[in-house]
Design a protein around this nucleic acid. Structure first.
Length: 267
DNA sequence: GACCAGGAATTGG
DNA sequence: CCAATTCATGGT
């Protein structure tokens, strides 16, 4: 059977995993808007079907360029992730538009997926330009926004961060962080308003290709303390260090699997 | 009405 | 470096 994706890629699992927020699901078909690109995709008989853009950009976006068999070797070597592979081996770490990803995760602070989606979509509807034939707006480029223009989006206390980012971030600079070292890229991101270590590492993992990233949120905190620290307390830095040492460049993938399993009540 | 949601900034040890 | 407090909003 000819397959154009590696075995065990799970499109729905990956898109629903909270890495990415601008998609809509309609009967197994996923409509995606990433940056200025809109496309739809579905998985049938182990084949990834894409409409609206070429296979290559869609596959890159979905994280299908990575050496996943190498990842599985690492995940199988630890009993805690090995036990999850039956259900979660189809997870991939996506590679999104960095600017949209950054803004999305600044919106994510102390929020929830439904609201993050509404916030990101609201920003696109209010300031993005229509994408020909897609029935959706591109994610707006960084630009000085009119005073109070974000108010109706109801971003809460994240509003002033988003406003400052729109007026100050250079997209080429942001994308260029992919070529820096892990420490340099993170140090640069943390300088941005509304960006702490967690948001920085989400951006690095899900859009800049840093597989060693380990975003530590409330879920990972609970899971790590219970399953990697024998129930004892541990700081976010200790958690990230331990997972990074164990999973190396597949830390973000392991983190994403643990995160999803935790939310699914399987840990 | 309390409590939590993929945290960050500020301030004080 | 770590810990406590505050921030705005929506859902349960």
């Amino acid at each position: 059977m000819a397959r154009n994706v590696p075995p065990a890629f799970d499109l729905a699992l990956t898109l629903r995993s909270g890495q990415f927020f601008r998609y809509r699901e309609e009967a197994g078909n996923f409509r995606v808007v990433d940056g200025a690109r809109a496309f739809s995709c579905r998985s049938t008989d182990g084949e990834l079907e894409v409409d609206g853009c070429g296979d290559a950009p869609a596959r890159r976006f979905l994280g299908l360029d990575a050496d996943h068999s190498g990842a599985l070797d690492v995940l199988r070597a630890d009993p805690r992730t090995a036990a999850l592979l039956d259900s979660y081996a189809g997870m991939r770490v996506m590679q999104q538009d960095p600017w949209q990803c950054l803004v999305s995760f600044v919106c994510s602070a102390m929020s929830n997926v439904k609201r993050i989606q509404a916030n990101v979509e609201g920003i696109a509807e209010a300031f993005g330009v229509p994408i020909e034939g897609a029935g959706a707006n591109a994610f707006p480029k960084p630009q000085r926004l009119a005073k109070g223009a974000l108010r109706p989006i109801r971003l809460g206390w994240r509003e002033r961060y988003i406003d400052e980012l729109f007026g100050s971030v250079d997209e080429a600079w942001l994308a260029g962080l992919a070529g820096k070292s892990f420490d340099e890229a993170r140090a640069a991101l943390v300088e941005l308003p509304g960006v702490g270590v967690k948001v920085a590492e989400c951006t690095m993992a899900f859009s800049l290709g840093f597989g060693e990233s380990c975003p530590v949120d409330v879920w990972i905190r609970r899971i790590a303390r219970r399953h990697f620290f024998g129930g004892k307390r541990a700081t976010d830095k200790q958690i990230a260090a331990r997972l990074r040492r164990k999973f190396g460049k597949w830390t973000a993938l392991a983190q994403q699997i643990l995160f999803q399993a935790g939310r699914d009540g399987k840990l």
